Structures are given as structure tokens and as C-alpha cells.
Computed example of a mutant assay.
Amino acid sequence: MATQLLDRSVDTQLTTGLTIANVGGDTATYNFATMPGNLPKKYGNTVYIWQTPTSSVPRNAKPLNHNPVRVDQPDGSDVFSSLQIGNLPYLIAYAVGDSVSRVCSTAFIPASGKDFSYVSPGVSRVGIGSTSQTFQYQLPQGMLPGEDGDWAGLWEGQDTGVLYDKDVKPKRHLQVKSEKHTDQETFTDVVLERGTEYIIGYFKGGFSSSDPDRRGLACSVSWTQEA
């Protein structure tokens, strides 16, 4: 059976978001909204900032500063200070872990101090075969999924809570081996049953063939199988 394109309007997508709430002469206040069930403090979530001219994550450059997330609820805010807003450009990045390799969402502040731009992670279904499910992922430029140990899993059900629960094993999971910040991957040897709910979770880092790390959940897509 050939791969079929899908009606993605029936899908529910969730992501990790980062937005700029306010900028002053030397400060930048940001808001974050992460995945339901995330415990940012417990899981070591960290926000980084670089002084850099582009929105690509400068993963090999030392960050100007970083803020460990201090709350164990999915949403929150914090501030970076001692900046030169209006003179220099900055990139703020949210990591679902305690290393730059787990960055999944970014907010770019141009030197003008306005017209911010954002990139959030995303995963979406692309096509289905008789025993396969293809999906596309998106990350900020500069991220290297293969090197970072990214992975994705496929579960029955639409409750994002299962994505953090190590006792609920996925039907399939795979290592993302591409080094592109956006690309496609395919779950194979899997049959999706009509009328059944499914969810795909994309994780920044932590791949293991037997027991992958669930703490780096960046985004998800869920749906009810139609055919």
C-alpha cells in the first residue's frame, strides 16, 4: 500500500513556547509555556541567552548567561538583566534539560529591541502506509538532532501524561538520526487501527533503545485514526 497523505486539520499539536513579555534598556522579561505534565525545576529546564546577530542557536559559543527554571509548573516567567537592548541583538532559548543540546524553543531580540521572532518545536503527521507512520519535526536552526540524541515515540491514547510515564511503554520509538533542524522520520512495523487514539511525542535528547529519557519532551501531536 502506498503512503497516503493525511488531513492534519483533525490533529492536536502541543509545543514548548517562549515569548518576550517586555524589554527595557538593560532587561528582557520572557514567558514560557511548556508541555502539560512537565516539572521544569525537577527536570533541570534551563533558559539561555546569547549576544548573537542571528536566530540560529550558537551551540558552540558560551552563553552570556543562563537561568535555571525555579518552578515545577509548566508555565512561568523570568528576566535577564545587564543587557544592552536597543544596541545589540540577543537570542533567548528554552532547554528542556540542563544543557544547550536540549534547546527546543527560541526568541530572537533584534538590535532594535522590537519585532521579535520566535521558533517553537513541532511534530506533525505526514503520511501513513499499511505498516508505517511518517512524521515531520521542526526545531530551531542550529540544533543537531542526531548528535543530541533526540528521539520520538508513538503511543496509544491522547493523554500527554503517558509521555512522561516510564511505566507506559510506546508502541514504537526511534532515534532521530538526521542532523537537520527539520526533517522527516518513519515508524515502521506498526499497524494503526481505525477509531483508535494515538499520540507522537518528540524528545530533545535522552535516546536509549531500551529505556529512553522522558524528561526532554518538547512537543506532541495526537489524533484519532481515520483509516
Results as ranks from 00 to 15, higher is better:
Met1Cys: 02
Thr3His: 13
Gln4Phe: 14
Gln4Asn: 14
Asp7Val: 09
Asp11Gly: 03
Asp11Thr: 09
Thr12Val: 13
Leu14Gly: 11
Leu14His: 02
Thr16Ile: 06
Gly17Thr: 10
Ile20Leu: 04
Gly24Asp: 09
Gly25Asn: 15
Asp26Ser: 15
Thr27Tyr: 14
Thr27Asn: 10
Ala28Thr: 00
Thr29Arg: 09
Tyr30Asp: 03
Phe32Pro: 02
Ala33Tyr: 05
Thr34Phe: 01
Gly37Pro: 01
Gly37Ser: 09
Asn38Gln: 14
Pro40Tyr: 06
Gly44Phe: 00
Thr46Met: 15
Val47Glu: 04
Val47Met: 09
Tyr48His: 07
Gln51Lys: 15
Gln51Gly: 01
Ser55Pro: 00
Ser56Asn: 15
Pro58Ser: 12
Asn60Glu: 15
Asn65Cys: 05
His66Met: 14
Pro68Ala: 12
Pro68Tyr: 11
Pro68Gly: 06
Val71Cys: 06
Asp72Ser: 11
Asp72Gln: 06
Asp72Val: 05
Gln73Pro: 02
Pro74Thr: 09
Gly76Glu: 11
Ser77Gly: 04
Asp78Thr: 12
Asp78Ala: 06
Gln84Arg: 13
Gln84Ala: 14
Gln84Leu: 13
Gly86Ala: 05
Gly86Leu: 11
Asn87Phe: 15
Asn87Ser: 13
Pro89Ser: 15
Pro89Val: 01
Leu91Trp: 07
Ala93Gln: 11
Ala93Glu: 11
Asp98Tyr: 05
Arg102His: 05
Cys104Tyr: 06
Ser105Glu: 10
Thr106Gly: 00
Ala107Glu: 14
Pro110Thr: 05
Ala111Lys: 13
Ser112Cys: 10
Gly113Trp: 07
Lys114Pro: 02
Lys114Trp: 00
Asp115Trp: 07
Asp115Ala: 10
Phe116Ile: 02
Ser117Tyr: 03
Ser117Leu: 08
Tyr118Ala: 04
Pro121Leu: 05
Gly122Pro: 03
Gly122Thr: 04
Arg125Lys: 13
Val126Tyr: 11
Ser130Leu: 09
Ser130Pro: 08
Thr131Lys: 14
Ser132Lys: 06
Gln133Val: 13
Tyr137Glu: 03
Tyr137Ile: 00
Gln138Cys: 03
Leu139Glu: 09
Leu139Pro: 12
Leu139Cys: 05
Pro140Arg: 05
Gln141Leu: 07
Leu144Tyr: 11
Glu147Ile: 10
Gly149Phe: 02
Ala152Thr: 08
Gly153Ser: 08
Leu154Ile: 02
Gln158Asp: 13
Gln158His: 04
Gln158Met: 07
Asp159Ser: 13
Asp159Thr: 04
Leu163Arg: 01
Leu163Asn: 04
Lys166Pro: 01
Pro170His: 06
Lys171Gln: 13
Arg172His: 07
His173Gln: 12
Lys180Ala: 14
Lys180Asn: 15
His181Ala: 04
His181Phe: 13
Thr182Phe: 07
Thr182Asn: 08
Asp183Val: 02
Asp183Ala: 11
Asp189Pro: 00
Glu193Arg: 01
Thr196Arg: 12
Glu197Ile: 00
Glu197Asn: 15
Ile199Asp: 09
Ile200Trp: 08
Ile200Gln: 04
Ile200Glu: 06
Phe203Tyr: 15
Phe203Asp: 03
Lys204Met: 13
Lys204Glu: 14
Lys204Trp: 05
Phe207Ile: 00
Phe207Ser: 03
Ser210Ile: 08
Asp211Met: 02
Asp213Gln: 12
Arg215Gln: 12
Gly216Pro: 05
Gly216Phe: 03
Ala218His: 09
Cys219Thr: 12
Ser222Asp: 13
Ser222Thr: 08
Ser222Gly: 12
Trp223His: 04
Trp223Thr: 02
Thr224Arg: 13
Glu226Tyr: 09
Glu226Arg: 14
